[in-house]
């Protein structure tokens, strides 16, 4: 038996919106301590990893570990039934064939229920090595989102360079070339802060198209954390207050 109730259902709605363009079918792992999922996009370039702790739920019960195979496209359609102020409850029996999703609005007394059919997914689970990232950049999520969006209109690829003084996003395309450079900024206004933690400088190139997809999660968190290592995929991380973390991994583009 699994049951989890989230008071702020909008968070779950946003999570689904933030991953639906990247992954199609996903195994959701239920454990007594929380909910997690890991899935790659069809081209094996990007990976989504979500971890939600039971502590963030108003009510959480999972007697055993369970795997719920879900079509994210269909889950997104069901989530559209939810009002932004709804509480969301997820329910599944042992050996379940469907996931029951209940939307409740205590103010308007409206309740919506949907039984989403589960599917069997034979997905490849990747072991992500523990990595000590040599550059970690914490940046306002709205600002990072805007930088990526605007640069994408100029080039498909961005080169991210870090050093102890700044993080730089540079592009080179048919239009010309240029860069956005952000220095370490720990101003009193928290939302303006850009925090650089660089032990070793990194320079890597990435497809901006994916960054734009990841940035759909910017409404979940005020800050985006970029974790870089010269020999590793980029991690774009969004902390979800009191609930968990949504991470995206992106393989770099490599020069011939």
């Amino acid at each position: 038996m699994f049951e989890a109730k989230l008071t702020e259902g909008l968070i779950l709605k946003k999570i689904v919106e933030s991953i639906k363009d990247i992954v199609t079918d996903v195994n959701i792992d239920i454990s007594p301590s929380g909910i997690s999922l890991q899935a790659m996009d069809s081209s094996h370039v990007a990976l989504v990893s979500l971890n939600l702790s039971m502590d963030g739920f108003e009510h959480y019960r999972a007697d055993t570990n369970m795997v719920l195979g879900v079509s994210i496209a269909n889950l997104a359609k069901v989530m559209k039934l939810a009002d932004n102020n709804d509480q969301i409850t997820l329910q599944a029996d042992q050996e379940a064939t469907h996931l029951k999703i209940i939307f409740e609005n205590p103010k308007t007394e409206r309740t919506t229920e949907f039984n989403l059919n589960l599917i069997t997914i034979d997905s490849e689970h990747l072991a992500i090595p523990e990595t000590e990232y040599s550059s970690v950049v914490t940046i306002n999520s709205g600002e990072f989102s805007k930088i990526c969006k605007e640069l994408f209109s100029l080039s498909e690829t961005v080169q991210i360079t870090t050093n102890t003084d700044y993080v730089q996003f540079s592009v080179e395309g048919e239009v010309g070339s240029g860069q956005v450079r952000l220095g370490h900024n720990d101003s009193e206004k928290k939302e303006d802060q850009t925090i650089l933690e660089v032990s070793e400088s990194v320079q890597q190139q990435f497809a901006i198209r994916y960054l734009n997809m990841f940035n759909k999660a910017s409404t979940l968190s005020s800050f985006t954390r970029l974790c870089l290592h010269q020999e590793q995929p980029l991690v774009v991380e969004f902390k979800i207050d009191n609930l968990g973390v949504l991470k995206y991994f992106l393989a770099p583009k490599i020069s011939d």
Binding site: S43, V45, L126, A127, T157, Q232, P233, A251, S255
Partner: peptide, 14 residues
């Protein structure tokens, strides 16, 4: 010229 790497090159199938 750059080529898009795949995650499989970095992460092991578990």
């Amino acid at each position: 010229k750059t080529n898009q790497a795949r995650l499989d090159c970095f992460f092991k199938a578990g």
